[in-house]
């Protein structure tokens, strides 16, 4: 009767918290490893896990660690609900449950020899950081690489030190913008969409990856299209209520698709008609 059935997709695996890092006021990063010492399943960037707090509940969270470093599982989480607020209290050696990885990935394999434009808003940088790590590791495969990241204020900028380090790297073009700032901020103030036409990339040979609030993704995709990037080369990450992550509970349905298994990464071209519809 006692069994750890890795074949039951609804059964969480216990993972121990190795480190907790407080990022910005309501956001923190967990560094996890399996409690039984077994290997962490490999993941593709853009995928997510279902994270379980004993007796409380389970939520879908994108993976934000380095896919080329298989020794740890990293999740950046924003405390917005019951389960994530419980997770905010986790300390090293605490144990949570992990199921996954699930979902589609950012298809950077399609960007070989092309430019990549990454547009992130707020917590949306979390899954895209994984992608950046991967791109940096195999930098020579791609053309220009642009990161445009928008946050509320400089104090709410996720991974700010890393962003500033990336800004200094000659082979990355990094533009940081905020919605408002005090006079100590020397960067841009304004929406990410404003920085898109200013970035250097060849729209005919570009793959664009966008992650952030739905409104921001919608307007960014429109701006990219205005610049000449084809809709099928623009990718967004959608989010919906999920309980199973394997297409059985039905809750994540997004018209024709299930966000858990057909997404969360979708090409803008495939869901353009849905993004403009209310309450779909």
């Amino acid at each position: 009767m006692m069994s750890i059935e890795s074949s039951d997709p609804m059964l969480p695996r216990p993972y121990r918290v190795r480190r907790v890092r407080r990022e910005i006021p309501d956001t923190f990063t967990l560094d996890l490893e399996p409690e039984d010492g077994s290997a962490i399943p490999s993941f593709a960037t853009g995928q997510f896990n279902m994270l379980y707090v004993f007796g409380v509940g389970e939520i879908p969270i994108s993976i934000s660690g380095d896919p080329t470093k298989p020794g740890s599982l990293v999740h950046t989480i924003r405390a917005v609900g019951t389960v994530s607020r419980m997770m905010q209290k986790l300390k090293p050696t605490d144990v949570i449950g992990v199921r996954g990885p699930f979902g589609s990935h950012w298809p950077i394999e399609r960007a070989i020899g092309k430019d990549i434009v990454i547009i992130a808003g707020g917590i949306g940088l979390a899954p895209l950081r994984s992608t950046l790590y991967q791109i940096i590791k195999e930098r020579e495969k791609y053309g220009k690489v642009v990161l445009i990241y928008g946050a509320r204020t400089p104090e709410d900028m996720l991974y700010r030190k890393e962003c500033e380090r990336w800004q200094k790297q000659p082979h990355l073009e990094v533009s940081l913008t905020v919605d408002r700032a005090t006079s100590s901020w020397c960067g841009s103030v304004g929406l990410v969409t404003k920085l898109i036409p200013r970035a250097s990339f060849d729209p005919q040979k570009t793959l664009a990856l966008i992650c952030g609030p739905e409104v921001m993704m919608r307007f960014s995709a429109v701006e990219l299209e205005k610049c000449g990037v084809a809709a099928e080369n623009i990718f967004v990450s959608m989010e919906r209520n999920m309980k199973c992550a394997i297409g059985f509970c039905g809750r994540c349905q997004y018209s024709r698709s299930f966000v858990c298994k057909d997404g969360p990464i979708f090409s803008y071209g495939s869901i353009r008609d849905l993004l403009v519809k209310r309450e779909i």
Binding site: D26, G122, A151, R152, D179, G190, P213
Partner: peptide, 15 residues
């Protein structure tokens, strides 16, 4: 248009 979107405080608590 940009200001209106900025007003939404997209990255705020309910983003």
């Amino acid at each position: 248009q940009a200001t209106r979107l900025q007003l939404l405080d997209l990255y705020g608590m309910h983003a």
